[in-house]
């Protein structure tokens, strides 16, 4: 176990470096610069700004300096938000995204597993058909379609919940974004659980449990569900990353100050350091979540080393 963790962390360093390097040069190769949109600047001011952000040096030098700074934990000043550093910006956005993502993940897990288990239990009967049809629709409907619908009904029409905003994370403001964000994941997990449970329920060891006189509910919830959850665990890594790194769409529609919008805004404004910072944070989170999932997997399944994210597509 320790070996796995060490190996993964060591392996993560070159991957993160690769991500950073790729993004760095992609950003610099792109046409346009961070201060293009502003009105014409005098050469003197331009010179000052360039010096402040070290844009006057050659690209390799800038790259080396940036790497050096990142290693020391400083992501640099933002180009767009003149008074804030990237560290500060991420410090503002990330907790919001994490909070929404955490609840969405929890909701997706609970509802997804329950829905999938019911579908498997009533395989090929009407509850299964209804659940799976709902799941397909859930997977197939983009959240930017669902979000306006929910707002229109729950917020505008019935006025049960606020239309948007954050209010420091008050629960009424959390409900709609969390539900919207989790819907496709609920559907995906439900499908995964159903398929995996049906497979497990046809295994000989389920018959052994039945022959022991174990009650059907215990057979399902205990003997079958635990091995059946293995693909779900594999799926949790990518899902957690997708949920917790901030969804631009959700943030834009509900007006939430998360991390997702930094990226798109940063890219549009050529805010080099901000984009790089977000990419780095996302990269670190991907590594950590996947490591966490692998550790969890080994803990639940005593047999094997997971070879790949077998649950990527059910």
């Amino acid at each position: 176990m320790v070996e796995l963790v060490v190996k993964r962390l060591l392996w993560g360093i070159p991957v993160l470096w690769l991500i950073l390097t790729l993004t760095f040069f992609l950003l610099r190769l792109a046409p346009g610069g961070p201060f293009d949109q502003d009105r014409e600047l005098s050469p003197a001011v331009e010179q000052l700004i360039a010096e402040k952000y070290q844009l006057d040096q050659s690209l390799p030098v800038q790259y080396a300096q940036y790497l050096k700074r990142v290693v020391s934990g400083d992501l640099g000043p933002s180009f767009q938000y003149a008074d804030l550093t990237v560290n500060q910006l991420i410090g503002l956005g990330l907790p919001v995204s994490l909070q929404i993502g955490f609840w969405a993940l929890l909701l997706a897990l609970l509802l997804g597993v329950a829905l999938g288990a019911v579908a498997a239990l009533y395989a090929n009967r009407w509850p299964d058909t209804v659940a799976m049809l709902t799941a397909v629709i859930g997977i197939s409907t983009p959240n930017f379609v669902i979000a306006p619908l929910l707002i229109l009904w729950l917020a505008v029409h019935w006025q049960w919940l606020p239309v948007g905003g954050w209010s420091g994370g008050e629960w009424r403001h959390l409900v709609l974004p969390v539900v919207t964000l989790s819907l496709p994941y609920i559907a995906a997990i439900a499908r995964l659980v159903r398929g995996s449970l049906l497979e497990i329920l046809s295994q000989p060891f389920i018959r052994t449990a039945q022959a022991k006189g174990v009650a059907p509910s215990r057979v399902l919830l205990y003997h079958a569900l635990r091995p059946a959850l293995l693909p779900v665990i594999s799926y949790l890594g990518p899902a957690a990353v997708g949920l917790m790194t901030g969804s631009v769409v959700i943030e834009q529609i509900f007006g939430i100050p998360g991390m997702g919008r930094f990226f798109v805004q940063g890219a549009l404004n050529r805010d080099y350091t901000l984009v790089l910072g977000v990419v780095l944070v996302v990269g670190v989170m991907m590594l950590l979540f996947n490591l966490l999932v692998d550790v969890l997997y080994r803990w639940v399944d005593p047999r094997t080393v997971p070879t790949d994210a077998a649950g990527a597509r059910g």
Partner: peptide
């Protein structure tokens, strides 16, 4: 391990 969607956006 690359945040690919981000690269596509870029």
């Amino acid at each position: 391990a690359l945040p690919f969607l981000f690269l596509v956006i870029l």
